[in-house]
Design a protein around this nucleic acid. Structure first.
Length: 560
RNA sequence: AGACCUAUGGUGUAAUUGGCAACACUUCAGUUUUUGGUUCUGGCAUUCUAGGUUCGAGUCCUAGUAGGUCUACCA
């Protein structure tokens, strides 16, 4: 027996090495969202990588909110983020932390830096600082405040903390190197005066640390062994390490990977907000949104999203993944896990002329043929049923056609074989009003002795028993795969005006009334749907998560 | 222009001391099927360029080219 050796991605390789050579006996990672917005597809990759790493190698993953900018952050976002991560299936246990938990410690670190002459208070305006920073070609100039005495710096910094200076009047900067080719090393600001109410610390602080002086230090405080983040922080790594060295604290290691981009999806918080504010979508959880809450409402399963992240892989290359892969992951999961039901979206009436008017039968139908031990339900059948308009043609177009047409026979799923002998058409509109068929009494599914071999099987619902419901058919929000990557064109120009089509009156077999909000089902031969929270006992609402693959559509397109 | 990073089918990812370039998605042709779904079989298609080292290079060396990130008191 030869077993294929599983290949590790580059981060797993580093972790495996660190564990093997004893650098670490167990690992700790973290997912560090800023609570200033909703989580989206891009975040799912970071979540899966960080939590996935410790699921695979042991250890644990902390959830830490990077809440160092009180003006933008709120508890509402904290709760939404926690809910979304849990829904994806990850647990952080008691390891829920906040950068704001460390404000005291961070302040002490700043004091230590000042005492060691690695930080100073600067009175320059942000404009002056920007000017003196230089650019990629020219080195920066030292601030006139760079050589203040330790005592003066200590005193000024304390006054900053005590609220004696106004917002923007003074900052604390690290004293690194104004001529460093890496702009981030040119004496970065590490504390600013900001008299703002914080969602957790209230009005206690008048100063707040910057990302570079909060994130790495928080990692260190929590003994994070591997701090996994996206590529845009590559240039921050030298600074990350500089603080560790100067402060002499636990050396967490930052490793960067490329973030996930998906065609037809955007992941900029600013742009997503615009879609919400301008009413292009109904909210952050609109099923067309690439947010986790939007995808959940549309019908994505946690499993499908995790599989998708897994298949996307972990590298340092910029990736643009085909949304088709995400949809295929969903189909594969839902094919195995969802029950099938029959529904008719665009109905046309079929009258079975030789079936008794008052007769009704209950047809036994398997819920999910993919199950190892199939379960069954019954669906009522009678003389008058509805089928999909697209399942009937006045004339069969070619020999490959398997659906209903005059003179042709088809199987009604788990019921009888019928043959069309007539139809009623509105000559002015061309609309088919009724289709008249006769059924073969000896062809009932399960006890078929008719010997007939119809080529096609159709879904149907009994007119007498079907429930009316609403279907929301979602399509991509944009009609361009990369709406934000066109110079001179705003992404809003690529909004797909037909991203939502509402069918106010579809017909579904009565068994669906037993289902609950959030449940996913397959409408046979149509697609996967999820029961929306807008459903009431009077009227159910179904969101289309993804269509079934449809090779017949392709064949038709090719022939036209 | 400076620093850092990246380059393998259409897309994404493998190829672990230099040894037959493979897997998934897509696509195409079949098979199976009481879902034109699923299953199964097969096909098309790949190492950025130019040199070099080597019996042998996706992998090592040199020089290019293309792309990404960085000049916020955001994270």
């Amino acid at each position: 027996m030869e077993e294929k050796k599983e290949s590790l991605n580059f981060i797993e390789q580093i972790v495996a090495d660190d564990l093997e050579n004893g650098k670490h006996s167990n690992i700790i990672t973290r997912f560090p969202p800023e609570p200033n917005g909703y989580l989206h597809v891009g975040h799912t990759k970071a979540i899966c990588i960080n939590f996935g790493m410790t699921e695979k190698f042991g250890g644990r993953t902390h959830l830490r909110f990077d809440d160092t900018n009180p003006e933008k952050e709120s508890t509402e976002y904290v709760n939404a983020i926690k809910r979304d991560i849990k829904w994806l299936g990850f647990e952080w246990g008691e390891h829920e932390y906040y950068a704001s938990d460390y404000f005291g410690k961070l302040y002490e670190y700043a004091l230590q830096l000042i005492k060691d002459e690695y930080a100073y208070v600067d009175d320059s305006t942000s404009e002056e600082m920007a000017e003196m920073k230089g650019n990629v070609n020219t080195p920066g100039q030292n601030s006139p405040y760079r050589n203040r005495s330790i005592e003066e710096n200590l005193e000024l910094f304390k006054k900053m903390k005590d609220g004696e200076f106004e917002n923007g009047s003074k900052v604390l900067r690290a004293k690194v190197d104004m001529s460093n080719p890496n702009l981030l090393m040119r004496d970065p600001v590490i504390y600013r005066v900001k008299k703002a109410h914080h969602h957790r610390t209230g009005d206690k602080w008048n100063i707040y640390p910057m990302y570079d002086f909060a994130h790495g230090q928080s990692d260190s405080i929590e003994n994070i062994t591997h701090s996994l983040c996206s590529l845009e922080f590559e240039n921050h790594r030298p600074l990350y390490n500089w603080f560790i060295e100067k402060l002499g604290i636990f050396p967490s290691r930052q490793i960067e990977f490329s973030r996930m981009n998906v065609t037809y999806m955007i992941t900029s918080k600013r742009r997503l907000l615009k879609l919400v504010e301008e009413g292009i979508v109904s909210g952050w959880d609109d099923p067309r949104m690439p947010t986790i809450s939007g995808m959940r409402r549309k019908g994505y399963s946690p499993e499908s999203i995790r599989t998708f992240c897994d298949k996307a892989g972990v590298t340092k290359r910029e990736q643009m993944i085909d949304i088709g892969l995400l949809e295929e992951c969903l189909r594969q999961d839902l094919n195995k896990t969802t029950d099938r039901v029959m529904a008719v979206l665009n109905p046309v009436k079929v009258i079975i002329t030789n079936y008794p008017e008052d007769k009704e039968e209950n047809m036994l139908i398997v819920n999910n043929p993919e199950e190892n031990e199939p379960s069954y339900r019954t669906v009522p059948f009678c003389r008058e049923i509805l089928i999909e308009q697209s399942d009937f043609m006045e004339e069969a177009p070619n020999r490959k056609y398997r659906r209903l047409a005059p003179g042709k026979i088809v199987r009604l799923k788990s019921a009888y074989i019928i043959e069309c002998h007539d139809y009623v058409k509105d000559e002015t509109t061309g609309e088919i009003k009724e289709i008249h068929c006769k059924y073969f009494e000896d062809s009932r599914s399960g006890s078929d002795t008719s010997g007939l071999k119809p080529k096609g099987t159709l879904g149907w619902v009994s007119t007498r028993h079907a429930i009316k419901a609403e279907a929301r058919l979602y399509d991509r929000l944009f009609n361009d795969p990369t709406p934000t990557k066109h110079d001179g064109k705003d992404f809003m120009e690529f909004i797909n005006p037909n991203s939502l089509k509402i069918l106010p009156e579809i017909y579904v077999e009565p068994s669906v009334t037993q289902r609950e909000v959030g449940e996913r089902l397959q409408f046979m031969r149509i697609g996967y749907f999820c029961i929306d929270r807008d459903s009431t006992s009077e009227r159910m609402v179904f969101n289309r998560a993804v269509t079934l693959k449809d090779t017949w559509v392709k064949v038709q397109k090719k022939n036209t």
